[in-house]
């Protein structure tokens, strides 16, 4: 036996990125734009989608629901009468805390791509791992609720830097929590200068129109790299 050294120089996430590109090609071929929606658990992703996707005009939307276990979120969206596909990471993916390109690929056959213009992929609630794994999306957006505190951009910069939109949700709770909205927005700009943000309350509906407009405008904007 002897020891040899082999130079590799390969991105650890290369395999994931390759599959993400394949997903992206399939989405492009079907003319579907894709948004990867991320947040900590309980920030309000599903509640926002329930409100925002209720009326998207002539833009046809589908949702891929990522969760570790169960179909609670997908069930909540059924009243919208849009295609919703549940992806559980507990089934064959080791209960992963995020979606990766291969998991999304495994769900492609279940998504009626020909019948939609926009696919929202609701990632597993987690502010860390989902930021590392591209899934073939055109845009990445995240939800951060004021209940999480105004310091979150500073504590999870990878996620806040990865997204082009930050939806600041639960603003109806501002009077009841210690978070300072100005400080939260300043921290956001510090970590990701120029990032777009929206203020929403999925509960009262305030600002949700802006989120809907942002989603719908993905369909009309030219494809990004």
């Amino acid at each position: 036996m002897h020891r040899i050294k082999v130079r590799v120089v390969e991105d650890v996430l290369d395999a994931n990125n390759t599959i993400a590109r394949a997903n992206r090609q399939d989405f492009d071929r079907a003319g579907v734009r894709v948004v990867n929606l991320m947040s900590a658990p309980g920030a309000g992703k599903t509640a926002l989608l329930e409100r925002a996707l209720a009326d998207t005009g002539d833009v046809r939307v589908g949702v891929l629901e990522g969760d570790v276990e169960g179909s609670l979120d997908a069930d909540r969206l059924t009243s919208l009468h849009i295609p919703v596909v549940q992806l559980n990471t507990a089934n064959g993916f080791g209960g992963e805390c995020h979606l990766d390109a291969n998991m999304v690929r495994s769900s492609l056959a279940a998504i009626p791509l020909e019948e939609i213009d926009l696919l929202v992929i609701e990632n597993v609630g987690n502010l860390v791992c989902p930021a590392e794994f591209r899934v073939g999306e055109d845009a990445r957006a995240m939800v951060c609720s004021v209940a999480e505190g105004d310091d979150k951009p500073l504590k999870y910069p990878l996620m806040f830097r990865a997204c082009e939109l930050a939806v600041i949700n639960k603003i109806d709770l501002l009077d009841h929590v210690d978070a300072d909205l100005d400080k939260l927005l300043a921290n956001l700009q510090t970590v990701h200068p120029g990032i777009e943000h929206l203020l929403t309350s999925a509960r009262t509906g305030e600002g949700v129109d802006g989120f809907r407009d942002w989603l719908v405008s993905r369909v009309r904007s030219p494809a990004t790299a």
Partner: peptide
């Protein structure tokens, strides 16, 4: 200024391997 272009620090690479080879 906070407006900086990142030049390094986003690496996540497997650079090299040492393998056992049966000659």
């Amino acid at each position: 200024s906070f407006d900086v272009e990142v030049l390094a620090g986003e690496e996540l690479l497997v650079e090299a391997l040492e393998l056992e080879e049966d000659l």
